[in-house]
Amino acid sequence: MKKLIIVFLSIFFVNISFAKSIVADLSNDSININTGFNGAELFLFGTYDGQEGDDLFIFIEGPKTEATIYKKDYISGIWINKESVTFKNVPSFYYSIFSKSKVSSESLNYLALNNLGSSNLKLISKNPQKYRNLDDWINSFDSRMKKNEMWITKKGTGKNKIEIKDNKLFRAPVILPATVLPGNYDVKILHLRNGEKISEENTQIFVKKTGMGSKIYSFAHDYSTFYGIFAIVLAVFAGYLAAVGFRKV
C-alpha cells in the first residue's frame, strides 16, 4: 500500500514539474455566421503554472485582408474623401488581453520583438514611397480600428476581462462583433515571467458562413449572371403575384 502511494505521489509530482505548459480550451471553437448571426460571445479558459507577478497574454488574430483609410477634406462646402492609404495583410480583427493593466517594460519588449499586440503590427502600405507621413496614417488607422472595435485591447483582471484564480486558472470572454469576416482566427496564449517566455499555447477559432446566407453569398459571387437573372425573375414573379393576389380584394 505504501508503495502504491509513493508511485501515485511520484506521478503527481512529475506531472506538476512538467505542468509549466498552458492547457486551454474554448467554450466554442467554431462560429457559424448563419441567418440569425448577430455577433458571438465565447470563453477561453484553461490552466497555467504562474507565480505572483507573472504576465498572461491572449491574442486573437482574425483573417488578414486589405484595408483602406480615407481622410475627408472640406472642399467647396462639402466633406469629401480626399486622401487614402491602403494597407496590405491587415488583421481584420485583433483581440488582445493583458492580465495586468501595467505591463513591465521587459514584457512589452518581448511583445514588440515578436510583433504581438495590435500596436506592434507591421502595417505595410501598398505604395509606401508615395507617403512621407506614413506614420501619422498608421496611427490614425490604429486608433480607428480600435474605435470601430475591430481591434480590441483589454488590460487587467475583472469582469468582462480576464479572470485569474491562484495564478493557475484563467477565464476570458471573447466577443466577436457581427461584422467579423469568415476565416480562421489564431488564438495565442502567452505566459511571461520578467519578460521571459515560460510557455505558450496556440489554438484556433473557425468562423464560417453557413446556412442559406452563405449559399446566397456564394451564388451571388460565383454565378453572378444566374444570380442577376434569378433576382429579376423573383421580382417579376413577386410583382405579378401581388397584382393578381390583390385584384380580387
Partner: peptide, 16 residues
C-alpha cells in the same frame, strides 16, 4: 451629413 464637420474625418474600409 455632407456639410457639417464630421465627427471623425477618417473612415476605414475593410475589403471583405
Amino acid at each position: 451629413d455632407l456639410t457639417l464637420t464630421p465627427e471623425d474625418i477618417f473612415s476605414i474600409e475593410i475589403k471583405r
